[in-house]
Nucleic acid binder design. Structure first.
Length: 455
RNA sequence: GGCGGCGUGGCCGAGUGGCAUAGGCAAGGGCCUGCAAAGCCCUGUACAGCGGUUCGAUUCCGCUCGCCGCCUCCA
């Protein structure tokens, strides 16, 4: 029994796949006009973890995530840099996936682009007009939210209270402040598509409806994204679909924000760090571990300290992995501890509680070390294999010490040090260890000789 | 203004109507080690405040204080 917090229900609900054994999920992807920041990284990791977990659980997952390549911000950047919007979009899409690869985020099974769906969107908007839930305004076609009974569901607010707080300047012709644009007329810009209403561009909220339904059908299991998409974006998608009598997504899932101090990280606040910046100095797995150590719906502080703590924790995991390898244990043929697998599943089934699951895996790590200390190799093998199998299920692979290509001078120093130690010239060997440390190499003495790590 | 959420040890961060063994990081003490490192063992007066419900509340309810989010583009 797998449960998740469903934003539409406002509580944790049991997730019963529409088709037994399968799972269809649509996750709102990036608008490609700039580099991805830590917040994008978190959502990508959260849904990557969800997908991997469901697959581990034996479900056949269809994971769809779009690329929004039609947007005013893309146009603005293109104009500012005197190139075409398509060029800007292509550049940042490529950069997006290269960063996602570094983060170990699996490619979604389907990656639809808004530009491929413009014709489809025009037909959809036309249907909305025919259904009388949309109308023509001065500068485009608008959705009439008053035609939907429960507008505000995903915001968990009534239409009246939403209206009371509306911060958007009213356009005279709009029937309600919350009405949103489906088709933006743009007679001046070269970047436009022909439509029955004149040249223009589709509004943001329509593409995901059209693409998700095209690929997954009129009803699918889950629709997700960052919490900031719950309203108005997802709500606007939902009401369009509802107006067309689609059953649409059975569940809505949103992840919490990355925080900078006490503020949400966002483009508009300008307080963002790009993922590429983070990855310059940090193992990408450390960010995944940091994300795993908190609950996906909680705000997550990402700063130099929390990142370095996660990096340190990761080092210790890797170091245990290395210890096991050094003990001559063959992990690939080890049995797995069924009890632990079950416990992991129980915890993860409870609203994807990766924090508790990870805590449990750290306990296994500790147990592996204890077993190795006691030379209980067979049990250590099973425990370690189980731990690594489960970390793998959520996308975290442990690695041994990198076989660093040692520069010749380092090799020479190591040889001298070994000789000094064999001769019990400890003052000299400690001096050599210091020299190596200064060169960026950490030397440890073990029962099987010196071990070197790049620092 | 409306709606929602949060406040747990030195820091980060889970969880729970029944002793707060979460976990991570940091710190102190010990074992091991030529010394370190790694590893192991031990240690640390933590549930914002005030009421209420209850045999029992950190957990449920109310109020207060503090912080945050959404209502506009946002992952």
């Amino acid at each position: 029994m797998f449960r998740l917090f469903d934003t539409a229900a406002g509580e944790i609900v049991e997730i019963v796949p529409m088709i037994p054994g399968q799972f269809s999920m649509y996750v709102c992807g990036p608008t490609v006009y700039d580099l991805a920041h830590l917040g994008h990284g978190r959502y990508a990791l959260v849904f990557d973890i969800l997908r991997r977990y469901l697959e581990w659980r034996g479900l056949k997952v269809r994971h769809v995530s779009n690329i929004t390549d039609v947007d005013d911000k893309i146009l603005e950047r293109a104009e500012a840099e005197n190139r075409s919007p398509a060029e800007v979009a292509a550049e940042f899409e490529e950069k997006w996936f290269s960063t996602m690869d570094r983060l170990g985020v699996l490619r979604p099974h389907y990656i639809p682009h808004a530009t491929e769906y413009v014709e489809n969107m025009i037909r959809f908007i036309d249907s909305l007009l025919k259904a009388d839930v949309a109308y023509a305004g001065d500068d485009g076609i608008y959705f009439d939210v008053n035609k939907v009974a429960d507008y505000g569901l995903l915001a968990r607010q009534s239409p009246a209270s939403l209206r009371a707080g509306a911060r958007v300047a009213e356009k005279e012709f709009k029937r309600s402040a919350m009405d949103f644009v489906l088709w933006k007329l743009s007679e001046t810009s070269a970047w436009s598509w022909e439509s029955p209403w004149g040249p223009g561009r589709p509004g943001w909220h329509t593409e995901c409806v059209v693409m998700s339904v095209d690929i997954l059908g009129e009803e699918f299991d889950l629709h997700g994204g960052g919490l900031d998409l719950s309203f108005p974006h997802h709500e606007n998608e939902r009401v369009q679909a509802e107006a067309m009598h689609y059953k649409f997504s059975r569940h809505w899932v949103h992840n919490g924000f990355v925080m900078v101090g006490s503020e949400k990280m966002s483009k508009s606040l300008g307080n963002f760090t790009t993922l590429d910046e983070l990855l310059e100095s940090t193992d990408a797995r450390a960010y995944r571990l940091l994300v795993l150590q908190s609950h996906y719906r909680s705000p997550l502080d990402v700063n130099a300290q929390t990142v370095s703590e996660a990096s340190r924790a990761l080092e210790r995991l890797d170091s245990t992995h290395q210890r096991v390898i050094d003990s001559g244990i063959d992990l690939t043929s080890s049995r797995l501890n069924e009890e632990e697998l079950e416990r992991f599943r129980d915890v993860m089934d409870n609203d994807l509680d990766t924090a508790t699951a990870t805590a449990r895996l750290f306990e296994l790590r500790s147990r592996v070390n204890q077993l190795l200390d006691d030379a209980l190799l067979e049990e250590a093998a099973t425990t370690c294999a189980t731990m690594e199998h489960l970390f793998g299920a959520i996308g975290l692979d442990l690695v041994g010490a990198k076989e660093a290509d040692l520069p010749d001078d380092v090799k020479a120093l190591l040889e001298q040090r070994e000789a000094a130690r064999n001769a019990k010239e400890y003052v000299r060997s400690d001096q050599l260890r210091k020299e190596l440390a200064a060169l960026g190499f950490l030397v440890e003495d073990t029962s099987v000789g010196q071990k070197v790590k790049r620092t």
